[in-house]
Simulated assay, not measured.
Amino acid sequence: MTAVKSPLTEAAQKTTGEALQGALVDLIDLGLLGKQAHWNLTGRNFKVVHEHLDEVVALARQYQDEVAERSVALGVNPDGRARTIADRTTIPQLEAGYLADDKVVAAIADVLAQLIEKFRDRIALTDQPDPVTQDLFIAITAALEKQHWMFQAQV
Rank of each mutant, 00 (worst) to 15 (best):
P92W: 14
E55F: 14
Q147T: 02
A139T: 12
D29W: 03
P78E: 03
L144H: 05
N45C: 14
W149C: 12
G75T: 10
V155W: 13
A107F: 06
V49T: 15
R81P: 00
V105R: 13
Q154T: 07
I28F: 14
R120I: 15
R44A: 15
V111A: 12
A19M: 06
Y98P: 00
D127T: 08
V25P: 06
T42C: 11
I116H: 04
Q36F: 06
T84C: 01
A143N: 08
N45I: 11
R83M: 11
L74S: 04
V76E: 09
H50M: 10
T84L: 02
L33W: 15
F151D: 01
Q21S: 03
D101A: 14
T2L: 14
T141M: 02
T15W: 13
T133S: 12
G17L: 06
D110T: 12
A23F: 03
Q114K: 09
L53S: 08
D65V: 00
Q154L: 05
L115G: 09
I116W: 02
R83F: 05
A11L: 10
A113V: 05
D135C: 03
L74P: 07
A113Q: 11
M150H: 07
F151G: 02
T2Q: 15
V104W: 13
L8M: 01
P92V: 12
Q36T: 06
A82W: 05
L144Q: 09
I91Y: 07
Q152M: 10
D101T: 15
H148G: 09
T133E: 10
T2E: 14
V25C: 01
R70W: 15
A109D: 06
D127K: 07
D65E: 02
E69F: 05
L115H: 10
A142H: 13
E69M: 02
A124K: 10
R122K: 15
Q62H: 12
T2P: 13
W149A: 09
T126R: 08
F137T: 08
Q93Y: 13
E69A: 06
A107L: 07
D29P: 00
T9I: 08
L115F: 14
E145N: 11
L125N: 03
A86T: 11
R61K: 00
Q21G: 01
R61I: 01
I108C: 07
E145P: 12
I91N: 03
V4P: 01
V25G: 00
T42F: 15
P129E: 06
L59A: 02
D121L: 13
A82P: 01
E18D: 02
I140E: 04
R70C: 14
H38E: 05
A142R: 14
T90C: 11
G31T: 05
T9M: 05
D26I: 05
A19D: 04
L99K: 09
A12F: 15
L53H: 04
V76D: 09
P92S: 04
T2G: 05
E69N: 03
G80Y: 09
G34M: 04
L8C: 00
R81T: 02
A68K: 07
E66K: 13
D87F: 00
R88I: 01
R122F: 15
